[in-house]
Amino acid sequence: MHELGVVFHVIDEIEELAEANNVEHVNSVTLQIGTVTGIIPDYLIDCWNWAVSKHENMTECKLIIEKIEAITHCENCGENYNTIIYGKKCPHCQSDNTYLIQGNEFMIKEMEVI
């Protein structure tokens, strides 16, 4: 259910950008989504396909999703590691003193328009 709300937000922003750029029709939108955002791409695409059909200038607009891997940095030992596998605890030194450096992005990268 969260995905639908998110899709509405994306479409609102695309509509604003379309108006500002004199766009007639939006053919595709590319999103960059981190792997720890909690967004499920398959659900997002289902919601997207339903929602764009309600917008005249976005009919059949394709949603392209680029994944961004989640990486955490350890302040204690300076290593970077895969967040999905190891979570908050550094696998190199077992420290909790870590922070996410990428993976929670949710960006509109670009849109293809006519």
């Binding site: 937000h9 766009v23 053919n27 999103l31 949710f106 960006m107 293809e112 328009v113 006519i114």
Partner: peptide, 18 residues
Amino acid sequence: MKDIRIIEVKQSVFASND
């Protein structure tokens, strides 16, 4: 046939809400 353009956005989806 109209020209297809790519508009680079690079904007966080939550940016406008923030």
